[in-house]
Design a protein around this nucleic acid. Structure first.
Lengths: 148, 148
DNA sequence: AAATATAACAGTAATCATTACCACTTGGGG
DNA sequence: CCCCAAGTGGTAATGATTACTGTTATATTT
């Protein structure tokens, strides 16, 4: 079967408990945690792992094209969903989520049009909306201050 | 006339040589420099300014809604053009530019649709394309290594 | 299944961007 | 012209990320 381990091996990456744990967590969640949050989750799970290894592992997974890194604030967020999609970054709670709804944007079609118009060769498209998520809007205790 | 100074005063900001220099540079260029690059440019111009002041000034300008901050890499880039537009981030030379061509994306229309679908209240939309700019593609001396 | 080469891990230290702090200076309304 | 809130500059601190190095585990070979 096409397990995580197979996918790792297919990219020439050794299969270690740490990698399986980190990649598995990213695949299971539809949130997009930061490296630090991911580290806490991994430790909570079962696996002893250093903070450094989280970074190096994430870097290895990015190089292998298995996950992507999002520039959605001051700290990097990581996403196992490689299909281009819209991200919602809440400036109050700091969470980054997907926009599940179809908002009629053809993200895939952008690259060829830009290439034709400007000669820019696109490798990755990132569409991020910054604002206040529905949850934080209701529990409006703190004033939304943009804390990039 | 609607000078820089007037715009600063209208936002309750004092007009200092440092602010005029920094804001002026951002208005003049259609590049989107980082804070460090901006610092070098300001010093080159005429004004003695500390690196710290560049940051605080940029922050003040952002708060006033006169410029915007872009999350287009590891370092922040700044843009005096407040209209939502597409950015092209070259992973080879690190420059961030505008996509002048119309690529048929309705950036303004996204916010209300997302609000209706998910309840997310959008304050700012950022659409960035990561890849290799036309210039770096021709002078292909270095291998494009995604540094993120 | 043991040996071996190679890649990964953990811990610390270093780097880079950004922010905080505080004493001193300055713009601009009264 | 004077005063004071706001701005500036210098240094120090923080937070995120990367580099380095000795040790350990994986996958492959024998």
């Amino acid at each position: 079967m096409d397990s995580m381990a197979d996918r790792l091996r297919a990219k020439g990456l050794k299969v270690t408990p740490q990698r399986v744990a980190i990649y598995g967590l990213l695949l299971d969640t539809n949130e997009h945690p930061t490296a630090e949050r991911l580290w806490e989750e991994v430790k909570k799970e079962h696996v002893a792992v250093s903070f450094n290894t989280v970074y190096t592992t994430l870097h290895a997974l990015i190089e292998a094209g298995l996950i992507q890194r999002l520039h959605s604030g001051n700290a990097a967020h990581y996403d196992a969903d490689m299909a281009p999609h819209v991200h919602l970054s809440c400036q109050v709670c700091g969470e980054v989520g997907d926009c599940s709804a179809d908002i009629g944007i053809d993200l895939l079609g952008i690259s060829p049009r830009v290439q034709a118009a400007t000669g820019f060769c696109t490798e990755k498209v990132e569409l991020t909306l910054y604002g206040c998520c529905a949850h934080c809007a209701t529990t409006a205790t703190s004033i939304p201050r943009a804390k990039h």
